[in-house]
Amino acid sequence: MLFLLIPFVLSFLISFTDLRLGTPYPIRFVGLGQYSRLAVDQGVLRALRNNLLFGLFVPPIQTGLALTLACLVNRPGWRLAVPLRALFFLPVLFPMSLVAVIWRYLYAPGPLGPFNWLLGMLTFGMWQPHDFLHEPRWALPALALLSVWQGVGLQMVLLLGGLQQVPVDLYEAAAMDGAGPWLCFRRITLPMLRNTLVFTTLMTTILAFRLFDQVQILTQGGPADCTTTLMYELFRSAFERQQMGRACALTVLLVGIVIGLAALQRLAVREQQL
C-alpha cells in the first residue's frame, strides 16, 4: 500500500511544479499552471475524448454480450455448456499484449486481411476493405473490439456466478403464473443480477480509463491522435519528453476520474442492499 500512497502523494506535489528531468534549470513552483496547460492541450483533450468514447461504448456492449453469453451457457445438464463456458473464458488467459499482436494480423489492410476477408464473406462482397488501425474513423473502434473480445469472458463468469445464485423456485413460481421466458428475464433475472451488473459494468468503465497496452502496441496514439489515451499521454510526457510536472498532473487527473467512478460504483451497489 505504501507503494501506492507515497508515489501518489509525490506526484500530487510534483504536479504543482515544472520538474523536467535532464535540464539544468531549478524546479519552479507553478501552482495550478500544469493543470491550466492541460486544459488547453490538444493531445490531452483528444485523449480525454477517446477515453470517454471508450468508456461510453465499450462497457455497455461488453456487459450486454457477457450477459447474453452467460444466459446462453447457463443450462445445467447441456452437454456443451461447460466446453463453451471454457471457450469464452479462454481469451482472459491471453495477455493483452498477445491479443494485440494477434489482432494486428486480423486487422491487416487489403481484401486478404483476415477481418476484411470475413466481412467480405458475410456481406457477399459488398464490403470495401479498410486499413483498420491506420484510418482515423476505424482505429478506436478496432481497439474497442479486441478489448471486448479479451474482456467479455471474465465478465461472463462473474455474471454466471450471479445467475447461479438466483433461486430456481422463483422461475418455477413465475412459470406457474404463466410468465414467458422474456418476462422471467426482465422481472427475475435482471433485478437479481443488478449488483453484479453494476459492479462489472463500472469495473469495465474504470478499465477504459486505464487503457494503455493496446494503444502502445498497435497504434502509438495515432492516426492523428485518434487513439491516444490519458495513460498513453502520461507515458509519453514522462518517458519521451521528460516532463514530470505534466505527467504528474495527468496522474492526478486520472486518479480523480477513477476515484469518481469507483465512488459511483460503491454508491450504486450499496443502494440496493438497504
Binding site: F3, L4, S11, R210, F212, L234, C248, T251, L254, I259
Partner: peptide, 14 residues
C-alpha cells in the same frame, strides 16, 4: 482509498 488508485497512476514516480 488505495483500492481506488489504479497502479498505472503511480507507475511513473514508482
Amino acid at each position: 482509498l488505495c483500492m481506488m488508485i489504479p497502479f498505472e497512476a503511480v507507475a511513473v514516480p514508482l
